[in-house]
Computed example of a mutant assay.
Amino acid sequence: MSPLALPRRRRNERETPSDVPALDPPITVGRWDVSWTLPAALLLLIVVADWRAPEHMRIVTWIGLVPAFAAGMCGVWTTAVFAVVCLGTVIGLEQSLDHRYPMGGSEFLLVVTACVLSVLASALRLRANRQVRRLEDAAQATRLAVLRPIPPRIGGVRTANVYLAAERAAKVGGDFFDVQPTPFGPRVLLGDVQGKGTSAVDAAAALLSAFREAAYYEADLAVVAERLEHRVRRQNQYVSLLGEAGERFATAVLVGLPAEDTGWLEIVNFGHEAPYVITDERVWALPEGEGAPLGLTELTGRLPPVRRVGFPAEATLLLYTDGVSEARDRSGAFLPLAEELERASDTSPRGVVDLVENAVLRHTRGRLTDDTAVLAVCRDPDPPPGGLALD
């Protein structure tokens, strides 16, 4: 994984709150915590400098920087130890050196104050980190409740996915995706609810629950699309009864793969980015979303049509949200996704998702401006028996 991706979990693995990296991880070498080495080195440098400095220079007054550095890198007890050592060092140097310019009482009081404040700052830093960590755990639990983990092999397809959160302390947003095995073949949904916050998450959860039921029981993909549209409208009506302002809509892509490989798939695009099909020979985009987003089809008077497009048996289908298509570098240039895909050496779902993830993080230098969801699927040439799920 790219170092820029460290704050964010990837792959098809279930991420529990305890899996989330610490906000302020210690500096380690192997299994050893070496965060204390920088304050210790600074302390040694100040002592040596004061020992060798001319009599009119008192470098030791800078020793208050040592516990300040420790407060930003170490725990409370380690910071307290550095504070005590620094005070002892000051007293020891004053007694060992016959200075013409001894440290005054105000200077010593300044060092004492710096040591005490550093210990307090360390305690406050750790307390704030614990608070943010609890918020991260709650947000992560919410995301897992909405975006359930997708097995790498399910319902006759192989899958891979990644969710990159733009705001590290709030790992929930309106991006959603799922793969549902059905008697009619696997069906895939990916989309993005307009807006942020818990109301966007609530709308995404409503859409996913409707998809999981309708996709399994409805043979016609157009009926599944209609159920999704009705679910968004009902959700908006419910929210309005609660007195919350603003209706939600969602761009989305709904895909159905026949149970038997027929060389094609069905797709309904609700104003979303065009998915890509990737093979070892070429890369091409499926039709753009000419329909209105979910929740706004009343404006056009009809649902987007179900289109049948070619999909070779060896191909991988890539779906993504606007965190990919609108990823910009420092100059404002968009990510050339098609060019990145054309350079893919591994066209499996895992390889494609890894490529897109690394391309987005490299292009934006890890500064994501929007949540990013990426999902790739391909037909499983040797599906395991009994892979049909009922939920």
Rank of each mutant, 00 (worst) to 15 (best):
F270M: 08
Q235H: 15
T198L: 14
R233T: 14
G191A: 07
H230T: 12
P258D: 10
A215L: 04
F270E: 06
L265P: 02
V224G: 08
A225H: 03
E226N: 13
D261A: 15
E218K: 07
Y276T: 02
E273F: 02
G246L: 13
R212D: 02
A259G: 07
K196R: 11
V283R: 05
P186T: 08
D178M: 10
L265C: 12
V239T: 13
R231C: 12
L286M: 04
A210K: 03
S209Q: 08
L221K: 06
A250D: 03
L254Q: 03
A200G: 07
N236V: 11
H230I: 10
H230G: 11
A274N: 00
G185W: 01
D192E: 08
S209D: 11
F176Y: 13
E266K: 02
E247K: 10
R231H: 07
F177A: 11
P181L: 07
T279G: 09
L265A: 10
L189R: 02
V223Y: 06
T262S: 12
R248A: 15
K196G: 07
A203P: 01
R231M: 12
I267Q: 09
D192N: 07
E213M: 12
D192L: 08
R234E: 15
N269I: 08
D178E: 13
A214P: 00
T262R: 14
G185F: 04
H230S: 13
R227S: 12
S240H: 12
F184N: 03
G246I: 13
L241G: 09
A245E: 13
E247N: 12
V268L: 04
R248S: 13
A274Y: 00
R231A: 14
E244V: 15
E247C: 13
E218R: 11
G289F: 00
D192Y: 08
R212Y: 06
V277H: 01
G243A: 11
A274C: 01
R227G: 01
D202A: 14
A250C: 15
G191L: 08
T198M: 15
A222I: 06
N236K: 08
F249D: 04
V193P: 10
P186L: 10
S209A: 15
L221S: 04
V223C: 05
A215N: 02
V232Y: 00
F177S: 06
D280R: 11
H272R: 01
E273M: 05
E226D: 13
D202T: 13
F249L: 13
H230E: 14
E218Q: 13
N269S: 09
V253D: 01
D202H: 09
E218Y: 05
V239R: 08
G256A: 14
G191I: 03
G191S: 05
V268Q: 03
G256L: 06
D280H: 11
E273D: 09
A214Y: 00
A252G: 07
E247F: 10
G197P: 06
L189P: 00
R248Q: 15
A252I: 08
L207M: 11
V179R: 04
V277I: 14
D178F: 06
E247R: 14
V255F: 04
E226Q: 14
G289Y: 00
E288P: 00
E266F: 02
E266N: 06
Y238E: 15
F176W: 03
L190S: 08
L241W: 10
E288I: 05
V201R: 00
E247H: 09
L254G: 03
Y276F: 14
